[in-house]
Write a protein that binds this DNA or RNA. Structure first.
Lengths: 111, 111
DNA sequence: AAAATTTATCGTATTTATACGATAAATTAA
DNA sequence: TTAATTTATCGTATAAATACGATAAATTTT
């Protein structure tokens, strides 16, 4: 996309955009739902449920993990991914906090 | 990205992913903040504030509008964009609703 | 009417995301 | 030890996003 100007925005804007970006794919939202619902947090179980190849699911899991939405460990042929609620709560609080702040200025709108 | 499998997910997953996608760029978050703060909702004002060319800002505005986060009208050489709070509230409610539901299952986590 | 102003759109270059097959890596089962 | 199982990573093809200059379109101003 030509030169990325991401770092010319505030840290808050970058952080919230990054949070939104991880959730900007239905597969990653579906994975979050599976991780919350199922008691088995193995990659294979997710592959069974999602209409995606194992490599693709693994890639999505990596992105969720890098962003801090989930945490996971791999022990040999097994994996265990779970939602990192401590991190998620921070994100959600920041996210909702911003929109709450915007909503307080509702009156100023010119249309 | 090879064949997109977007429509193999549930409508809710697609909708929330679409909502997150619009907010997945710092410029669009910055635009939302400007629209809430400033009383002048013209494109030119946003161009002044953001580190982006006019064409790029116009493109971001279009995406925000298409997703329903903002509404706007153009009268000749002027434009007037504002946050569509009715639509935004629905999105935020759906978004938070999902994570609240997931959070209720916290106990089931295996890690 | 002509010039200036403001915004949307078009075309295009470049970067990033998405998806998967193949394969490696690490363990468990036989 | 060998085979089977499970997951991560690599390489790669293709699609989508990002950014902007140029230009068109629609007024307002002069």
């Amino acid at each position: 996309m030509a030169i990325a100007k991401t770092n010319e925005f505030t840290q808050q804007e970058q952080d919230l955009a990054a949070f939104a970006k991880v959730l900007s794919h239905p597969a990653r939202i579906a994975i979050m739902k599976v991780l919350a619902k199922e008691n088995a947090c193995i990659c294979g179980r997710i592959v069974e449920i999602l209409p995606l190849a194992q490599a693709t699911v693994s890639q999505h899991l990596k992105e969720l993990k890098n962003a801090g939405l989930i945490k996971g460990t791999v022990e040999g042929p097994k994996s265990c991914y779970c939602i990192d609620w401590e991190s998620m709560d921070k994100y959600l609080q920041e996210f909702n906090g911003m929109f709450s702040a915007l909503q307080l200025q509702k009156g100023k709108s010119c249309c």
